[in-house]
Design a protein around this nucleic acid. Sequence first.
DNA 1: AGGTGGACCCGAACGC
DNA 2: TGCGTTCGGGTCCACC
Length: 275
Amino acid sequence: MQVEINDPRLTRPFERRSVAAELEGETVAAVDRRGKYLVVRFESGRSLLIHLRMTGSLLHARNGALADDPYRRAVVRLDDGSDVAYRDVRRFGTWLLLEPGELDDYLAARLGSEPLDRGFTARRLAERLQDRRAPIKAALLDQRTLAGMGNIYADEALWLARVHPLRPAGELAPDEITRVTKGVKDALRAGVARQGATLRDYSTPDGRRGRMQLEFKAYGRAGEPCDRCGTPIEKTRVAGRGTWFCPMCQQLEPRRYAASRSSRRPSRSSRQSSV
DNA sequence: AGGTGGACCCGAACGC
DNA sequence: TGCGTTCGGGTCCACC
């Protein structure tokens, strides 16, 4: 293969020309995914880690069939005569070339388990959330908790689970963790089944819009009635991100009167947290 | 040391 | 109409 990289941001801090030269002559052995990373494995043992961020996309076309595109940042010319174009309007996406043996450590340092794998269980999630004081939504967005949750599906998962996004992650009761586990899986499966959500830029590789945005229960629905109870969805901010939830179904203090268990930490009322 | 918020980028949507 | 401002998405990094 032969590679042309036009955006210096794409390979930063490495020089685009030297990365392109390094890729020259490589042969693709497999294409894979881990979390939000695409993994292109080469026969040499090296791998190219591609992160599309929000507006990145790959387009495969026969040689010379690519239409002009001001947002094309790179082109890979494959030996079979086809081209792969990398497009990214906002230039947030990244290409990182890793040497043989570097991939596993790089990913392991950043990513938790795959939520749709059998290994992702309530028990596994409970381990990851133990002792964490961050809001559950922040913990879900942390890719080390589990791989692949973004802002939209975190809101959807928590709505499905009926858990308030600001609940301290380490204080979730076992049944809540079970529901969050299921909510994560169901939200992601729904998104995959509908080929993602097209809010603005995203399209499938064949140029079609995703349909998940038509199914949102919480995300972006401030003021609209909750599909479960009719209470208007509210918007707030958690971990710096827009966050939508049902104030009735997702309560901050779910067992205010129940008590009995969960007595470990004394309530510190002195700390004022404005919501 | 874990958690938080700003920086990065740029088109769309908004306010005046 | 035309301008300026705000927003958002994921990750890294500085700071508390």
